[in-house]
Design a binder for these strands. Structure first.
Lengths: 212, 212
DNA sequence: GGGGCCATCATACCTTGGTGTCGGTCCGCG
DNA sequence: CGCGGACCGACACCAAGGTATGATGGCCCC
């Protein structure tokens, strides 16, 4: 138990702001609060940085020399779902704030802000990042298993989770019931589902990917 | 089919704003777009108005004489989940905007705004209201059925949706398997679930209420 | 041509789920 | 006190799920 904290990797707080004095003071604040920090003076270098495998968040200035903050937010929306964004800005207007929040920003702060407000926002962000990463990993695992199914197995799975009996599945696919059982068994093993309830929940989590 | 539109009740747009000229112009705008409208000069009278049974939304001024807009939003958050809020304000500041959006506001507009922007916001709001009302009705139905279960039936349901076999349920509850079957059958009928898959989905929808 | 994968089906066997009927105890309520 | 409901359980019976073994044929690729 003693070295568990040492083994856990430290969350990273990214900062993208074109003002060097802001970067420096934020870096100091972040590191003194016990997180790792990495700063960038514009969006493009940040985008080319490889992803990290630890909980993280992004403190992002709205106005930037290359891509502005909202653009950057759009770029990483699909890409890094486990990196919540905290916006900071010198002169914030309402429409920009609304756009940022609608696009899923966790927080939107105007400079100057109280340090504690930012620190607690980071706290929340890291916590959310952790949860999002965990969920993403689950979904990734499920998608891999689903991808390993054959077409028939997928068809059987879809009908089974919708509550059809083997007999009905057989009728809808115009095959015999025993064949359905074969597909079903193989599918359950591939999905590593150890009960129908399990499978239904998996399908619910997967439902966005199952349609596409 | 011909009189179906006539039978469908018209969505209602509520307006709470202390400026009479705003109320009047909004009323005109809303009604000319084909919706019903009801206006209030402050929060309290609005709160005492009975709920409507049609899709609806609320156009809400941030600053009001009695309860301010954010307070009112808090009050109706649990109460009227099917009434999305569109904020309007003369002098909007960023922190207020953030609070409103975090609390689930659909839109936050600063006066003066383009009519079309508001109209399309109302469109979205009504659509969301419709969906929310439908979902709420589903949940209400499920909760009623769940409430009609006896304690034992609920215990059996919880174990069944977690993937346990009747045999295992019997062991965990220290009763015989045949009794589990009896409870299970009665529970399925009461819940109007016609397959295990069905029940698992119901339980997923109900899960917030099942814990509490 | 052979090996691998997929899909199909069959036979046989066992487990699990589901229902109906019947009977019993306990408890609370009018 | 009697009634209803919850809870428990047994017997019987049938439907559905699950697995093992084995076999056939199509297809693709080396």
């Amino acid at each position: 138990m003693g070295n568990r904290a040492a083994l856990m990797s430290t969350p990273t707080v990214f900062v993208v702001d074109d003002d060097v004095s802001v970067r420096e003071s934020l870096e100091l604040l972040i590191q003194s609060a016990g997180w790792r920090s990495e700063t960038f003076d514009s969006a493009v270098p940040f985008l080319s940085r490889p992803h990290v495998a630890v909980p993280s968040c992004l403190i992002l200035d709205v106005s930037l020399p290359d891509l502005d903050g909202l653009e950057l937010q759009k770029r990483i929306a699909d890409d890094r779902v486990d990196m919540p964004i905290i916006f900071i800005t010198g002169y914030g207007d309402v429409p920009t704030t609304v756009r940022a929040m609608k696009a899923g920003a966790l927080e939107f702060l105007t400079k100057p802000f109280v340090d504690d407000v930012l620190l607690s926002a980071i706290d929340h962000a890291i916590e959310r990042s952790r949860a999002a990463a965990e969920f993403a990993a689950t979904v990734r695992g499920l998608r891999e298993r689903y991808a390993s199914l054959t077409r028939r197995e997928r068809e059987v799975m879809a009908l089974v989770v919708s509550g059809r009996l083997n007999k009905q599945v057989a009728a809808e696919l115009a095959i015999s019931e025993i064949t359905v059982k074969a597909h079903r068994g193989k599918m359950m093993r591939k999905m590593r589902a150890d009960s129908l309830a399990d499978l239904v929940n998996m399908a619910a989590t997967l439902s966005p990917q199952m349609r596409g």
